[in-house]
């Protein structure tokens, strides 16, 4: 009995409280917390070091000098926002009650290549809508499907309804321009309507520790043919720089579909699955946590090039024509005439 009690107390003493070392809610504490969260969880340090020489320790040295005890919350937000912009990542945000720090150069530095006014000339007002997806048969017997977001869950009933309605068309356009993402499961569900056998759409890995190179072996993201209606005829996927995150993943998945042509502008990228965390003062941090790769094990963080590059021309813009939709229609018609 005495031995038992001795063992019990020994174990109690050895079992220290599980706590996390945190910083206080000061300007320095919030700065150090943000730097540490990114340092321990961000997934593209090595890639971005190769791409443009990112050195996160150097970022600490630069920005810690700008932190002072008496700076205001707005000034602190400005410095911390600038620091996370060093990551060149649209998935990295810092949000406070008064602002959202972001890196939007991935689309702000490029032509918009999308206008809902131009799109209205094709969609009109009599289009169908399900789960946010707008679809219509255009005059040339081409189906047009606009997917503005993957925020909604797409059920097989929704997707089958779309493809049943468009079944008479010679080809369809899946327009994911200005689609800034949403649920990967929805992107996957839509892509699975275009394959007839299991395909590896890409790969995903995750961090296994705090080190910048601590990653699991990439595992395949398997696409399984949809149980409902599947599209067998040609399809054009329209992209622009604002095709981001889950929409970038959808584009990546469509690269494995033999009847798909990617058309438009390079996507915005964003292939890191984002996680959230927070600072002592309550500001919410978002960062890329899990890297995804395409079927050739290439990181698509900075976008996917289309098979056919098209921009909306100023002349077409002035005449109310969407060059990208027009080119897609012509491409599908040429395929059907062969």
């Amino acid at each position: 009995m005495k031995k038992l009690i001795l063992i019990l107390f020994s174990l109690l003493l050895l079992s220290a409280c599980v706590k996390e070392d945190t910083y206080d809610n000061s300007t320095q504490g919030n700065f150090e917390t943000l730097w540490k969260i990114i340092d321990e969880h961000y997934c593209f340090f090595d890639y971005k070091h190769q791409e443009y020489g990112l050195d996160w320790n150097d970022v600490h040295r630069q920005y810690s000098q700008r932190i002072t005890k008496d700076m205001t919350q707005e000034q602190l937000f400005e410095v911390l926002g600038s620091m996370i912009r060093e990551l060149h990542d649209g998935h990295v945000n810092l949000s406070s009650s008064f602002n959202l720090a972001r890196y939007w150069n991935w689309f702000e530095d490029y032509p918009a290549n999308f206008s809902d006014s131009l799109q209205r000339n094709y969609l009109g007002t009599d289009y169908r809508v399900t789960q946010g997806i707008r679809y219509k048969i255009l005059p040339d017997n081409i189906g047009y499907v606009y997917v503005p977001s993957f925020d909604y869950a797409f059920g097989s009933g929704n997707l089958s309804a779309i493809f049943s309605h468009l079944a008479i068309c010679t080809g369809i356009i899946i327009d994911v321009r200005n689609n800034e993402g949403g649920m990967l499961t929805s992107a996957q569900a839509l892509a699975e309507c275009f394959i007839n056998e299991k395909q590896v759409g890409g790969y995903i890995s995750h961090k296994t520790g705090k080190g910048h190179a601590d990653f699991s072996a990439p595992q395949p993201i398997e696409l399984t043919p949809a149980k409902g209606m599947r599209w067998q005829k040609p399809v054009v996927v329209l992209t622009n720089r604002k095709t981001f995150s889950a929409a970038n993943s959808f584009t990546m998945f469509m690269k494995v579909c033999p009847q798909a042509t990617l058309m438009g502008a390079r996507t915005g990228g964003g292939c890191g699955l984002p996680f959230n965390s927070e600072l002592p003062n309550g500001w919410l941090v978002r960062f890329s946590a899990s890297p995804m790769y395409d079927k050739d094990m290439q990181i698509t963080e900075h976008g996917i090039d289309p098979d056919v590059s098209v921009d909306i021309s100023p002349q077409d813009w002035a005449q109310g024509r969407d060059t990208m939709i027009e080119t897609a229609i012509a491409h599908l018609q040429s395929l059907s005439s062969h």
Binding site: H41, T185, Q188, H206, K207, Q219, S290
Partner: peptide
């Protein structure tokens, strides 16, 4: 006092999407 057993946990940076939607275990 608990002496030993088994528990579920995601890997350090692993998402539940990876575990339950893709079926990847680690």
């Amino acid at each position: 006092l608990q002496l030993g057993g088994l528990m579920f946990s995601p890997q350090y940076g692993q998402s539940y999407y990876e575990i339950f939607s893709l079926g990847h275990s680690d």
